[in-house]
Every structure is written in structure tokens, then in C-alpha cells.
Design a protein around this nucleic acid. Sequence first.
DNA 1: GTCTATAAATGGATAGAC
DNA 2: GTCTATCCATTTATAGAC
Lengths: 204, 204
Amino acid sequence: MSTPAREMRREDRRDAILDVAYECFVADGYGSTSMSTIAARLGGSKGTLYNYFRSKEELFAAFVRRSCSELRHDIDSMPPEGDLRGRLVQMARHLLDHLLLPEAIAIYRVVVGEGERFPELTRLFYEAGPRAGVGRMGEALQDLMERGELRRADPMLAAHQFKDLALSGVYNLRLLGMIEDPTPEERTARAEIAVDTFLRAYAP
Amino acid sequence: MSTPAREMRREDRRDAILDVAYECFVADGYGSTSMSTIAARLGGSKGTLYNYFRSKEELFAAFVRRSCSELRHDIDSMPPEGDLRGRLVQMARHLLDHLLLPEAIAIYRVVVGEGERFPELTRLFYEAGPRAGVGRMGEALQDLMERGELRRADPMLAAHQFKDLALSGVYNLRLLGMIEDPTPEERTARAEIAVDTFLRAYAP
DNA sequence: GTCTATAAATGGATAGAC
DNA sequence: GTCTATCCATTTATAGAC
């Protein structure tokens, strides 16, 4: 084995710490979370925390990094089928599902709130999240434009507009905690509404 | 006079404290800002702070409240003139100018970041900011629909889409600190692009 | 590696002189 | 009303027993 049992257990412990850190940072933010609280919830001691992370800042950075890599991993896969409208609705629905995940909302909240103090983490999140997502969407739309299914236009601009139409009236309210998580039916309805508007603007 | 000089000076002092609190909370968030820091930057003592605000939480609440009332005040006035497209462009441009104000971005960041712990302040911000703004936009669009200048549709839905198209590709990047404040020329260009897309979707 | 105990500094909040 | 000084809890981080 390339990873001995010893190191395996160490990785597990590290993950357990990050799990607790996730809960704490998401609930209270960076400044209002203490290492003591994390240690207590972990059922361990602060000494152990500092054995795995050299400082609170480093633990916070590790928490953001892990959340970002999970975002990136989750964004993969999705081959839409059917007619044009049906495929776009699938894409919008996928976008909604992805960006409204409680974990995605939570990390966005933390990164925005703490962005002034941790700009490099904000950039990391941006690359893994919004940038990757819109980039993928842009490629898909460019493909549709080249095949004549959509009017020719700037694919990245269209991708941004597609994303913002899909999230219109939901995402920011969810970010502020002003609405509950939309039901599957509501998501589909919103995806269809967004696509209808988008198609009116981008039909050939 | 209804406000004696004594009370006037007290109000000024209170405002000065809130000015400093604004800088601190915006820069570091709630948890990472200390009353000691605020007192030091104020050039006063903590005792003075506690003479005006009973606790750190109360000071924070006062800071959010003041920011919200400034937002609401600033959102007033705007009678667009000219042809339909020109008027919509003015509205989009006004929206951009308003929501990209450094103070508006800053308070949004803080409210989002601290929303989990101060839900009532989040609601306050929501009522004063997004809700008031989109509401106003909805009324304007409804008016245009009734006069036959726009296709009939749900005015509030259209208002959300109008707002999100206007901010598309700018607001969230600005919120994350990934781009600089757009120049006036860029704002106008973005307003025009948004309106062109909107009009394709909502022309009669 | 993990714990207890503690150092050293700082947090929110208060008391009392002026 | 504002200051200095201070209380006491809590903070990050470390030392040393096991």
C-alpha cells in the first residue's frame, strides 16, 4: 500500500477536524469561532488541533480549500438530451441544484463575509466555483450557437445571463436566508421560466 | 429649538462612533472587530463607547440600521425620459450605480457574512434594499406593460430578471472583490447590453 | 499523538475619579 | 460624559506528562 495504516488514520482524524471546523465556521464565521469550541465539539483538545494545523488561520484556509475542491468535483458530468428547450431547461435546473446546495450557499456566505481578510481564499473559491461553472456553460452555449440552434453572440456574456436568469429571484434571497430551499417542483418551474426568457432573447 | 445644543453634540458624537464602527465592521466583520479597536480608532475610550451603546451587539445593530436607512434614502428619485430603450437604459444604469456603491457592496458583504447570527438585521437590510428596489422596478415595468410598451407578463418576475440582467457578470464578481469598480463608460455599456437582451425578451 | 495545565494576550464590560 | 484602571472570562498558542 502506498498509504500505511498509520497515515490513513491521521488523514481520517484530519478530516474529522475539518468536518467540525466546517460546522463552526459556517455557523459563526471566522472571527466568532474559537479553537476551543472546535476542540470541544471534536471531543478532543486544542493541543491536538495544533498538531494538525499550525494556526487558526491555517485551519480556516484548509476548510475553505476542501470546500472548494468538493464544489469543483460536484460540478462535473451532465449530458443534456432532447430538444433545445428541454436541454436548456436541464442545464438551468442543474445549475439551480448545484448552486442552491446548502454547502454551496454556506461556503459562499463565509467567503464573501471573510473576503476582505482572506483575498487569496476568495480567488480560490472564485476559480473553483463561479468561473469554472460559467466557463462550462459558455462552452455549451457556444456549441449551440455554432450549430445554429442559438443566435450568434458572445458565448460568455450569454452564459452569465443564462446563469443569472436561472438564479433570478432565488439565489440572493436564499443567500440572505429570506426564503427556504426551493422544492424540486419550484426549481423546475424556475428553470423553465428562465429558459423561456433566455430563448426569447437568443433564438436564431 | 426642538434639539438643544447639548443633545446635538451627543448626536454628533454618536455619529462619529458609528463612522468608526462602520470602517471596522466592514474591514474585519463582527467577530474579528473588538470594542478596544473601535475605541482606539475613535481616539476615545471604551467607557465612552458603552455610554452610547449598551453592548457590542447593539453597536453592530446600530451600524447596520444606519447603513440601511442610507440605502433607502439613496434609492429615491429618478424620472427616466426619452424613448423606451433610452428609459430602460437609464433605469439599468441607475441600478448599477446604486448597487455598486462601495457602501452598498460593503454592507451587503457584512450582512451576508453575519446573517446566520443576526437574522433580524438581515431582514431589515432586505426590506430596505433589494425588496424596495425590485418593488419600485416592478411598478415601473407594470406601467410600461399597461401602456403597451412591453409585453404583458408578471411585473415582479420581469423586475427580478431586469435587475439580474443589469448586474450580470459584475455584481457577484465585485462582491467577491475579483474586479475593480466599473468605470462610467463600462456601466453604460453594460446597461445597454442588459436592456438589449431584456427588450428581445419583453418587446410586445 | 493526545491529553491537562498554563502561559500571555486580548476580549467585553464596569467602577470610580474628574 | 469622558477618562484611567481594572475585573474576569476567553482567546490563541505552547509545555510537558503520559
